[in-house]
């Protein structure tokens, strides 16, 4: 009987692959992978010579939704052939990745054992590289275009992470990035934060020999900052939320316990 294990390669080549994910890749009958870097692709095929890319399913003019369905179809076809299949995705396989979830759901619905293994996501790298604790004041995390079009409410007392600010407003791949809509993003953020508030533009290092790119800029200056295609923006809290006295009393928490 076939099975499916979905793994993530982590962000940084090699060093962030978990031991469990490595075994899932090396011991699979078939490995189907989607990665963003040619060197990672080469490395995958060395880990398991039965690995092949699903990249060819991307085609110009084909909606990404259809492409993801085709990826899930391809993964499931291998599972139905009775193979132990490993599907490998860049970063964390369940974060900003859709076909991984679709394939898991389909496999389980058809009675095949299917499991997703956690992995190192870009957000994990961000917390480590910026030295910030999302638990300290809470953390809001949005894809930048989604953040704007839904006019997401911002709590300035919690941290804010915005993904894909380097292509905000673009629905296609924009391989060179597109900063033309950044002024719209800045304008919206200034409804919640003062213009001099700090923003960190962050790009994780894709290779172990490299350092992350971190730019510290005023929020008002983000539109003219060097925002890379893969950049994520981190906005620290700009204010502190006071505990609610009535809620503290209800919970039986003395106010002295809170800093």
């Amino acid at each position: 009987m076939g099975s499916l294990t979905v793994v993530g390669t982590g962000i940084q080549l090699g060093a962030q692959l978990t031991p469990e994910a490595r075994v899932a890749i090396t011991e699979a009958d078939e490995v189907l992978y989607v990665v963003t870097d040619a060197l990672v692709a080469l490395w995958m095929e060395r880990l398991n010579p039965r690995a092949r890319s699903l990249q060819d399913l991307y085609a110009e003019g084909v909606s990404r939704r259809r492409t993801y369905d085709a990826m899930a179809d391809e993964i499931m076809a291998a599972v139905r052939r009775g193979r132990d299949v490993c599907a490998a995705f860049y970063g964390h396989p369940g974060v900003f990745v859709d076909p991984s979830h679709v394939a898991i759901r389909r496999a389980r619905a058809e009675g095949y054992p299917a499991r997703m293994l956690p992995a190192v996501s870009a957000e994990d790298c961000l917390f480590a590289d910026l030295g910030v604790n999302p638990g300290a004041a809470g953390c809001q995390s949005y894809e930048a275009t989604d953040f704007l079009v839904r006019r997401r409410a911002v709590d300035p007392s919690a941290a804010l992470v915005l993904w894909q600010v380097g292509i905000v407003g673009r629905l296609d791949l924009a391989p060179e990035g597109d900063r033309s809509r950044l002024p719209v993003l800045v304008e919206y953020l200034l409804e919640f934060y003062p213009p001099e508030h700090e923003a960190l533009l962050y790009e994780a290092a894709p290779y172990p020999a490299c350092d992350p790119v971190i730019e510290d800029v005023r929020l008002a200056d983000v539109a003219s900052a060097p925002v890379g295609r893969l950049a994520t923006m981190y906005v620290p809290p700009s204010e502190r939320r006071r505990p609610d006295a009535a809620m503290l009393a209800r919970l039986g928490i003395p106010e002295t316990h809170l800093r």
Binding site: D37, S53, R64, E143, Q164
Partner: peptide, 27 residues
């Protein structure tokens, strides 16, 4: 990183690379 990736692309000219998830992935 950009120069390193460009050099890798020269080293592996047949490799296909670099897709980025877009807004509709998240939606």
């Amino acid at each position: 990183v950009k120069r390193i990736q460009a050099e890798l692309q020269r080293e592996y000219p047949d490799a296909k690379v670099f897709l980025l998830p877009g807004w509709d992935d998240v939606m």
